[in-house]
């Protein structure tokens, strides 16, 4: 910590031996800002995709439905039998018959308020909450088949699992974007540092002639570039956060949409972006300037 403090405070005058106008340093600040902006968005995307995958594989995964498709006179008997099976199956937490009114309410947005839902051959619907770890679906299916042949148990896996996969891919994609952003920043900063060393050949020559060690010269350049990258990244991160804050926040109820914005303690994560940018810039400039100086002698 004290080493970092010393680094930021700098040696007296160390910051000044590298000419201010060093163009490369200015563009490093700008590019670090742009990268940090993208990094914050990619981070938010990764977190949102993570939440999405979690929702679809967690909360939602507990819900299942059971429908009875049977001739009218058998529906009630089969429903009773099915309920009995469910109630005696380990891993079934609760069962509830969805009333006709509830079904109407569910269908109304799709069919319109005037539609006479009664005319539809609606199956009897039972909402089930399961404990996925305990439930043995195969044995449940066997028992249902024996006692209520018209019962169809649906754990929504058919549409849920592809969505989970998609969300997980999306998160992977966002993480890859984050990694690439860091790599691109490293490459840009490294090239800029090398260019700066090359462009300041006269300054370096003079510093060497008056007895500056290479570590001192490297430190002066590293400091300049790290501070520029840090400054740029802070601004870029702030811009990214401002954009996220301005996005409409999708409500938590949103069935399978999740707001891209950050939630809760996740707002603290972007602080890492400028820190990592600064760290990357420090490591890369240090390496690049030392390599250039070695080649020079």
């Amino acid at each position: 910590m004290s080493a970092a403090g010393r680094f930021l405070r700098g040696d007296p005058g160390a910051g000044r031996v590298v000419p201010r106008g060093a163009r490369a340093a200015v563009s490093v600040g700008f590019l670090a800002g742009v990268m940090a902006f993208f990094a914050v968005l990619a981070l938010a995307l990764a977190l949102a995709a993570g939440r999405l995958a979690e929702n679809w594989s967690g909360e939602l995964a507990r819900d299942a439905t059971l429908q009875i498709f049977a001739p009218k006179d058998q529906v009630e008997a089969q429903a009773r039998a099915a309920l009995n099976v469910l109630r005696t199956t380990p891993g079934i937490l609760s069962v509830r018959v969805v009333t006709l009114d509830e079904q109407k309410a569910l269908l109304e947005p799709w069919l319109g308020p005037g539609f006479a839902v009664e005319t539809l051959p609606l199956p009897l619907l039972i909402a089930v909450t399961t404990d996925r770890a305990e439930l043995n679906e195969e044995s449940l299916a066997l028992r249902l088949g024996a006692e209520a042949p018209g019962a169809v148990f649906d754990n929504h896996a058919a549409w849920r699992l592809p969505l989970v996969t998609t969300a997980e891919r999306l998160r992977l994609f966002a993480l890859v974007c984050l990694g690439l952003t860091a790599l691109a920043l490293a490459a840009v900063v490294g090239l800029a540092a090398q260019a700066a060393v090359a462009a300041n050949g006269q300054v370096i020559q003079t510093l060497r002639l008056i007895g500056a060690r290479d570590s001192y010269i490297s430190h002066a350049f590293t400091r300049r570039f790290t501070l520029r990258a840090l400054g740029g990244a802070v601004i870029g991160t702030a811009a990214g956060l401002a954009l996220l804050a301005a996005l409409p926040q999708a409500s938590e109820q949103g069935f399978f949409l999740v707001g891209i914005g950050l939630q809760g303690w996740h707002w603290a994560l972007p602080v890492l972006v400028p820190l990592i940018a600064g760290l990357v810039a420090w490591a890369v400039t240090r390496f690049a300037t030392r390599a250039s100086l070695r080649r020079w002698s």
Binding site: D11, P12, G13, A14, V17, L207, I210, G211, A212, R213, Y216
Partner: peptide
């Protein structure tokens, strides 16, 4: 003062 500076001596 540069030879002082590069030797870590504060010219002040």
């Amino acid at each position: 003062a540069l030879p002082l500076t590069v030797n870590g001596i504060d010219p002040r």
